[in-house]
Design a protein around this nucleic acid. Structure first.
Lengths: 181, 181
DNA sequence: GTCTATACAAAGATAGAC
DNA sequence: GTCTATCTTTGTATAGAC
């Protein structure tokens, strides 16, 4: 039962940290800020997480896994542009708030520099672009299509809170149009 | 002549600060970091700028003005989607590195919260979207088109350093395709 | 599991000499 | 214009009681 409470508290911390990181940035958010919203002391927080960076890692784990799955899909030759971009849209819709944090905050990238994650992420984006470009060196249209799916998706999420099935379909269509009309 | 040197130093500070803000985020960059790269003490910095935030303001002034010009263009009814999106592309190409900072860093938005700028910025984006949507309430395609021009443009800038005339034309074409095929 | 108290470093900023 | 020295606040993190 004690375990239950600890797990609940852990979840609340991640939830609060996610909100604050998104609003003020990772570097711009202090442990005191998080503890304040949680309604406990800073020390209580350190019982659940060994450091601020550990909170970030826990928050990012899901997004990184989702990116990895999309990149894997893009890597295999069996999937067309529509499938790949559809997977990107679903990923954005699924990991919404956290992705907004990760993708938008330079201090997150700086905190993770050298620790595999970042290069992994950028490499994964490039893998998707390469697949969409189909070997074409002038990959501008592919970059544009990914921008629609990922950044356009983020903008829509921020605006509407979530993406309906119709939104996803429309977004995919717009991305495909950006790719090659 | 003393004025000349001061002006030069001011420029160097802005240059260095811009790079660091982009790499580590605004909140993640300290005055000491900037002074270190400048090769002087922290105090020297405070001779040129009264505060960290003042550096940010100076850095953002150009981008905000550029956004205002685009929004103004979008506001007048005489310009079509191609003109508006072209202006967005030019704005991105022109204010490159700084826009990447501004658009991507939550700690920048937090630092400016309440101080007109931010609402101004978001409002200006919405004005562009509204114009592109042409009154259509389902503005997804407009959001998508803006994402191509702005975020796609950012991604390209990050990748290529600058946008050639051909890049701009291609990007605009992709944005128009995202808008309505 | 959460608290108070505290260590310790880093941050933003200022004073006053040169 | 730039320095050294210093103040103050804030930040991350730990120790030890309950």
């Amino acid at each position: 039962m004690a375990d239950r409470n600890a797990a609940r508290t852990r979840e609340r911390i991640l939830e609060i940290a996610g909100e604050l990181f998104r609003a003020r940035g990772y570097a711009g958010t202090s442990i005191a800020d998080i503890a304040g919203r949680l309604g406990t002391s800073k020390s209580a927080l350190y019982y659940h997480f060994a450091s601020k960076e550990e909170i970030l890692d826990a928050l990012l784990a899901g997004v990184l896994a989702a990116h990895a799955r999309v990149a894997e899909l893009a890597g295999s030759a069996e999937h067309g542009p529509a499938e790949v971009l559809g997977a990107v849209v679903d990923m954005v819709a699924g990991s919404g708030a956290v992705l907004a944090t990760f993708g938008a905050d330079p201090s997150v990238a700086a905190a993770l520099a050298g620790r595999d994650h970042v290069h992994g992420l950028r490499a994964k984006d490039e893998q998707v672009v390469a697949r969409l470009a189909g070997g074409d060196p002038g990959a501008l249209a592919a970059v544009a299509a990914l921008a629609v799916a990922k950044d356009g998706g983020r903008a829509l999420m921020a605006e509407r809170g979530a993406l309906s099935a119709a939104d996803r379909a429309d977004l995919l269509a717009a991305a495909l149009r950006a790719l090659d009309g």
